[in-house]
Design a protein around this nucleic acid. Structure first.
Length: 357
DNA sequence: AAAAGGCACAACCGCCGCACA
DNA sequence: ATGTGCGGCGGTTGTGCCTTT
């Protein structure tokens, strides 16, 4: 036997919502707040299924919704996020303020999928023509990233990803997080005590990580809640590492191989070689009072970063994706997964870093 | 002018995970 | 530990408008 339907369909309106229904729903939610969808129709006097009310509110009536006119920037962002996340419309929508999953899904199905198919065909036929001159595949093909995450490198890779993000949105968080992730790795070699790990970060009375930098980031980034999520994600991953019994540090890639991930070339203008020494890590990760990016955001001192930070809009994701894709697409795709469970689910072999396809 | 086809998007459906009793 | 209800999600369908034939 299947589940019972969410409500009796008898006597309920179906199809397009009328203006009156919209007004009643809005008014009810204005007074009582949203939620309790199953009982809402009866209480509000709407002849609709609760789910239908929820959908109507979330997708069309909410005051913070942007309708139509998807900009080229947004379009690019959707394409790139879709490449990383697949049909995870709600996740994608979460990175586009004011847009709903339904709208993005519709836009994808009606416009973007065709557009992409067309451009793919174009570039493929171009590539076929040039097949003798080069053995490389087309740029479009090259830009398909595998989204397999890697467990063991969670803390460090997340911090690597946060670093470029933080350099745009809040240097405090990025520096602090990276720095401390490194410290943690090194601390792990000498002790398994979770207390010492937390001590490195600072923790509140309940033992939860609460670095001043994370608070700073959250406080200063009202337009980019995702940034806050990053900090939270990092905190979670660090807490998780406390629980791991395997010698994580030994499984990390040799630091000298990680310099590209760290993006230090971009930040400092010259290649940096890291060693496994704790001191080296700290020196490198704290040497960020001058940062440079190759996407138009130039050298900034502390004050400059702060100023920039205040003007950073969520759509700067595009630049962040530019940077991150170049440096560590695996980390990004991992980071974009919402929950720790979801990452667990995708783990596979913890000890190997899969190649980017 | 009318029918057919295409398109955009709102709405619906069924499944799933989580919380809670 | 288990069953149930709720909310959320992604796939699909329905519908109205526009364009083409």
């Amino acid at each position: 036997m299947g589940r019972s339907p969410c409500c009796s369909k008898e006597g309920l309106n179906r199809g397009a919502w009328t203006k009156t229904e919209d007004i009643i729903l809005c008014e009810y939610i204005r007074i009582h707040g949203d939620g309790g969808w199953r009982t809402l129709p009866k209480k509000a006097g709407i002849k609709r299924c609760g789910k239908s009310c929820r959908l109507r509110w979330l997708n069309y009536l909410r005051p913070d919704i942007k309708r139509g006119g998807i900009s080229p920037d947004e379009e690019e962002l959707i394409i790139r996020l879709h490449r990383l996340l697949g049909n995870r419309w709600s996740l994608i929508a979460g990175r586009l303020p004011g847009r709903t999953d339904n709208e993005i899904k519709n836009y994808w199905n009606t416009c973007l999928s065709k557009k992409l198919l067309l451009s793919m065909n174009k570039s493929q036929s171009k590539a076929t023509k040039n097949v003798k001159s080069t053995s490389k595949s087309s740029p479009v093909q090259n830009r398909v990233f595998k989204t397999t995450p890697v467990k063991v490198t969670t803390a460090v890779r997340l911090s690597e990803t946060i670093r470029p993000k933080g350099s745009m949105n809040g240097y405090g968080c990025s520096n602090r997080s990276s720095d401390e992730a490194f410290k943690l790795c090194n601390a792990k070699e000498t002790t398994n005590s979770s207390k010492s790990w937390c001590d490195l970060l600072g923790n509140d009375t309940e033992g939860r990580i609460s670095t001043s930098s994370m608070s700073l980031a959250l406080e200063r980034s009202p337009n980019s809640y995702y940034f806050g999520t990053d900090a939270a994600t990092l905190a979670d991953s660090l807490l998780d590492l406390n629980e791991l019994s395997s010698p994580d540090c030994s499984l990390l890639s040799p630091p000298s191989n990680c310099s590209a991930d760290f993006g230090l070339q971009d930040f400092c203008g010259e290649p940096v070689t890291l060693t496994a020494e704790a001191n080296e890590f700290e020196v490198v990760s704290s040497d960020q009072n001058i940062m440079q990016r190759d996407n138009g955001f130039t050298v900034l001192d502390d004050q400059g970063i702060e100023e920039f930070y205040d003007h950073t809009q969520p759509l700067d994701w595009i630049h962040e994706l530019d940077y991150i894709e170049k440096s560590s697409p695996r980390a990004l795709s991992f980071l974009l997964l919402e929950s720790e469970d979801e990452r667990e689910e995708k783990l596979g072999d913890h000890t190997q870093i899969p190649d980017v396809v």
